[in-house]
Design a binder for these strands. Sequence first.
DNA 1: TTTTGCATTTTTGAATGCAAAATCTGCGAT
DNA 2: ATCGCAGATTTTGCATTCAAAAATGCAAAA
Lengths: 221, 221
Amino acid sequence: MLHEEVVGRIRAILLDGEIPPGARIPERELCERLEISRTPLREALKVLAAEGLVQLLPHRGSRAAKLTDKDMRDLFEVCQGLEALAGELACERITDAEIDEIAAAHADMVRHYSEGDLIQYYRGNRAIHEAIVTAAGNPALTSLYASVTARIRRARYVTPMTPQRWALAVKEHEAILNALQRRDGVGLAHILRAHLRHKREEVLQAGFAETEGNDVTLRIA
Amino acid sequence: MLHEEVVGRIRAILLDGEIPPGARIPERELCERLEISRTPLREALKVLAAEGLVQLLPHRGSRAAKLTDKDMRDLFEVCQGLEALAGELACERITDAEIDEIAAAHADMVRHYSEGDLIQYYRGNRAIHEAIVTAAGNPALTSLYASVTARIRRARYVTPMTPQRWALAVKEHEAILNALQRRDGVGLAHILRAHLRHKREEVLQAGFAETEGNDVTLRIA
DNA sequence: TTTTGCATTTTTGAATGCAAAATCTGCGAT
DNA sequence: ATCGCAGATTTTGCATTCAAAAATGCAAAA
């Protein structure tokens, strides 16, 4: 198994919440499960620690990182900046074909909305945001975005929504698609910022930060 | 020696250009120099690879990362986004004391400019940009900014400038300080973006990308 | 019953050793 | 002289081993 694969598998385990935020990461167990020795596992944990997904405590092992309200707010703020930038760049560089794909993904997502399927809705939602970032044609931005969103993914794409908020989100996505089709970079940036600000408020209001005694895993189970 | 210290020392070696972009990283030598064994060194290299400073080639060791023109452009673009965001946030949150410090740093920098001391000028310049980012009060943003700027630092803070460009840069910095003092977030974001766009043009025009046969180390020596 | 001090156990962090892969070297063929 | 190839050498990646630090358990004292 390649180094990158090890990192990816552990990242998936963390993002799935299989090891919940704050929990200790059982080195020996993971070694057995991935059928590797401690050396490559520890290399991967150090990388994930640099990404912010793992917290290393010297001489006390590693834990799945836990985000405070402040952390969450900060990361959403950065995410807003990155998506706004991506939106502006995407409007300059996106191809008609890419726009069509996003439009199709949007239609799909709206369908899931009208069917009340939150899981599928979120899946489509995420695909759209990622497609916009990809369309910016800036791999450095894409990978930074990936690492930031990974840390807030569970909060962002798992929080339950009230019907009002959900309806608003869908409306905002209409505007997002519209701005893209008009290639209105500044407008798109504004909408994306507002969209994420609303999502952030939602998440924080729901008390979704991964603080002590606030286990996301249980909530979404 | 602690893990973070190892990472820091190697990062410094790379940023100083002691191991020039594209050059192989001599594992054994570094081990001896840092007086550690290969295990912690390799852990650090994996982390630096995740940061983009090191390129890992499976079964072929690691090299100091080399940036193409496109990489450089992309990173500057992201940096623009991050600094613009930081500027907006800083205007909301910066204290009067912090503004005074930045004003002092600015005055210092202008003095170095009038003395023609490019090195000191760049040092002050960097301090100002970093202070603005810090004033945004968002550690997630700060650390992301640090990792992005690290990759373009040598290009950004080493490129020689024509008198015209230097004068323009100083003018822009006047405007930056002014916007900060007026706490004009939107204005500051605009100026910062333009400032960085100019710097990027400078760097790319100077052919400063770390491509084959384009060794930055030699140029600045 | 609770707390404190000590010995034991467990776990972490790093060095070493080993097998596989890549690179280098030298020799012969064209 | 150059190219190609077989063997030797080096380097990489990982498993194992070893020492140090922390956690745990237990007994004795308050």
